[in-house]
Write a protein that binds this DNA or RNA. Structure first.
Length: 203
DNA sequence: TCTTCGATTGTCT
DNA sequence: GACAATCGAAGAA
C-alpha cells in the first residue's frame, strides 16, 4: 500500500461517461493530519455539458457551478437540500462543464475515523449515498476546486481494481426527474456491488 | 421490507 | 419565493 499510482490528468480528460465508468473500482483517498481515509468507488453518475438538462450547468455558468468549467481533474463540491455536500470529479477540457458525481464507496482505510463521523449507523450504510460519502470523508466547501491529480490538497484518487464490464450495472440517474427526456432516462449511472468488490479484494 | 415525510439553506428566477 | 444530483426516522404491512 506504500506508493500507489495516482490517476493522471489524462484520465479526467476522456469523455465524462467513459470517466464515470472507469472510476468504478478506483480508490478515493482523503488525508487528514497525515492519516489516510480511503475506499473503493462503487457508484458514479455522469453530467455532460450545458445541453444536459440534469446538469447544474444547464443554465450556463454561475458562481455555484463555476468549477465544472475547469479542466478535468479538479473536485467540484456543492451544497444541496439545505444540508448535504456532494463530491464530483470535473472532467473534460477547460470551459466545457462536465463532471462525475461520486455516489458511494466501500471504506477500506481509516475505518475508525469514518465510524466516528457516522456514529450510530450500520457499517454497510456508512458510504452508500453521495452525501453519506462526503460526511464520512469530511468533504465540504473547502474542498471545492482541489486538484485530484496531486496529494497536496488531501483529496485524490489512486489506481484501484479493474472492474469487468459484466459486473457493472447501468441505470438512469437519480433525483433528476425535473430534467425531462431524454435526460431522465439516459443510462449514465454506473454501479458495482460492494460484495463484488469485496470478493475481488479477498475481504 | 417498503413508503412517506420532515429537515434546512444556498442559489437562481 | 421555489426548490434542490439527499438522508434517516417513523410508521405501515
Amino acid at each position: 500500500m506504500a506508493s500507489q499510482t495516482l490517476l493522471k490528468r489524462e484520465f479526467y480528460l476522456q469523455p465524462v461517461q467513459e470517466a464515470a465508468r472507469a472510476l468504478l473500482g478506483q480508490r478515493l483517498v482523503r488525508l487528514i493530519g497525515g492519516k489516510r481515509i480511503s475506499g473503493i468507488i462503487l457508484e458514479t453518475e455522469a453530467y455532460d455539458g450545458e445541453s444536459d438538462q440534469a446538469c447544474h450547468a444547464r443554465s450556463g455558468r454561475t458562481a455555484r457551478n463555476d468549477m465544472m468549467y475547469a479542466q478535468g481533474g479538479r473536485a467540484y463540491v456543492y451544497f444541496t437540500y439545505g444540508m448535504h455536500w456532494m463530491l464530483n470529479c470535473v472532467c473534460g477540457p477547460a470551459d466545457y462543464p462536465a463532471a462525475v458525481l461520486l455516489r458511494a464507496m466501500l471504506p477500506l482505510e481509516g475505518l475508525d475515523f469514518i465510524a466516528e463521523r457516522r456514529a450510530g449507523i450500520a457499517e454497510k450504510l456508512w458510504c452508500d449515498g453521495p452525501a453519506k460519502l462526503t460526511k464520512a470523508l469530511a468533504i465540504e466547501r473547502e474542498q471545492n476546486g482541489v486538484d485530484l491529480c496531486g496529494r497536496q490538497d488531501g483529496l485524490f484518487i489512486e489506481q484501484g481494481l479493474e472492474i469487468p464490464e459484466e459486473i457493472i450495472q447501468r441505470t438512469p440517474r437519480i433525483g433528476i426527474q425535473y430534467s425531462g427526456e431524454p435526460w431522465v432516462s439516459l443510462p449514465w449511472r454506473f454501479v458495482v456491488s460492494a460484495e463484488a468488490v469485496r470478493s475481488r479484494l479477498n475481504i
